[in-house]
Design a protein around this nucleic acid. Structure first.
Length: 307
DNA sequence: AATAGACTCAACCGCTTGGAA
DNA sequence: ATTCCAAGCGGTTGAGTCTAT
């Protein structure tokens, strides 16, 4: 009790120092990613076990995509998985290589904040909306967006799978798509998926041009501009068009991503190491026994094969 | 160049869960 | 069956960075 009180009193908080990281890595090398509470009790670090675990999970664990933005495909997956599982960030993160629950959570909440801010502008017309102007600059063909009916999307993946959602190409996504689920707009079909371009539409609405005055079931998607895709992208996209919505959880064959295990479902949780079992059979469960400390500083984003 | 607002990310807090005693 | 504790999880916050004006 006294010892614990003493531990608490000298517990450090705030940003981690390189030496602390090193100590933690050494601990994991020796004991594996467990016994977190023994770290402060042994006097190895003046951090709570909780804090040590968090540091390991979010920053020091191998194969993390530190400092690398979510790809369009990752964004799509987060959207889909959030619709399926709700705010189960840890669960969602198991489907994304090298992403932690914290990453997913941060990604999601930043998008929500952004949308909320835009929606908040409703009633406060700003004819020179910088975002809108930016959008017009960035999205070819954004001007004079014609109206088209968006699918009603529900939280059910099954219903989603039958929707005729306009597929977004990779390159289009790369430039513009940040998808946001609108929860603050209950009069809309809910939950609804929004791209940045849709957000721009919301800005238009906030300037008094609400299409919802006429119908509540329409959402306005900007047309996908004409695109020139690489053959690889086209092939991949075609597969998404064919299968993504209808067979999200069904077995799927991606030869270019395949590492031999064709029976893996497309969206399959990755294992705790960040790789699926088939990825690298040379990595044992105790992979952390022999890596150099700087391994974690230079983890390259790997392609996102989910199998 | 200065400033404000937006955005990202690391880390903390409090609650829940699950296993051992 | 109950209690205790470590681990896990989701929500939140605040510092640092970026971007637009």
């Amino acid at each position: 009790m006294e010892g614990r009180r003493a531990e608490m009193s000298q517990t450090r908080k705030g940003p981690w120092k390189a030496e602390e990281d090193e100590m933690l890595i050494n601990h994991v090398k020796k004991h594996g990613p467990r016994d977190w509470s023994s770290i402060p009790s042994k006097g190895l670090l003046h951090r709570t076990g909780k804090s040590c675990r968090l540091r390991w999970v979010n920053k020091l664990r191998p194969n993390l995509k530190n400092g690398c933005k979510f790809t369009a495909e990752e964004e799509r997956m987060v959207i889909e998985l959030q619709a399926e599982f709700g705010n189960k960030w840890a669960k969602i993160a198991t489907y994304l290589h090298g992403r932690t629950d914290n990453d997913v959570k941060n990604f999601w909440s930043s998008r929500q904040k952004r949308l909320a801010r835009i929606l908040q502008k409703s009633g406060t017309p700003s004819s020179s909306s910088s975002k809108l102007l930016k959008m017009k600059k960035e999205i070819p063909g954004f001007h004079d967006v014609p109206v088209m009916e968006a699918p009603k999307l529900s939280s059910s993946m099954e219903e989603l799978s039958h929707s005729k959602a306009q597929p977004c190409s990779s390159s289009y996504l790369d430039n513009t798509q940040t998808i946001i689920k609108v929860e603050q707009f209950p009069e809309l079909v809910s939950p609804q998926l929004y791209t940045d371009a849709n957000i721009a539409q919301l800005e238009l609405m906030s300037r008094g041009k609400s299409p919802y005055a006429e119908t509540q079931s329409q959402v306005f998607f900007p047309p996908i501009p004409h695109l020139t895709l690489s053959p690889e992208s086209q092939e991949l996209l075609a597969k998404f068009e064919d299968h993504y919505f209808s067979q999200v959880f069904a077995p799927m064959d991606f030869p270019e991503l395949d590492s031999g295990n064709v029976d893996q479902p497309f969206l399959e949780p990755v294992t705790s190491s960040g790789f699926c079992e088939g990825d690298n059979p040379t990595i044992p469960d105790t992979f952390f026994h022999d890596f150099p400390a700087d391994t974690f500083d230079q983890v390259e984003p790997f392609p996102s094969p989910l199998v």
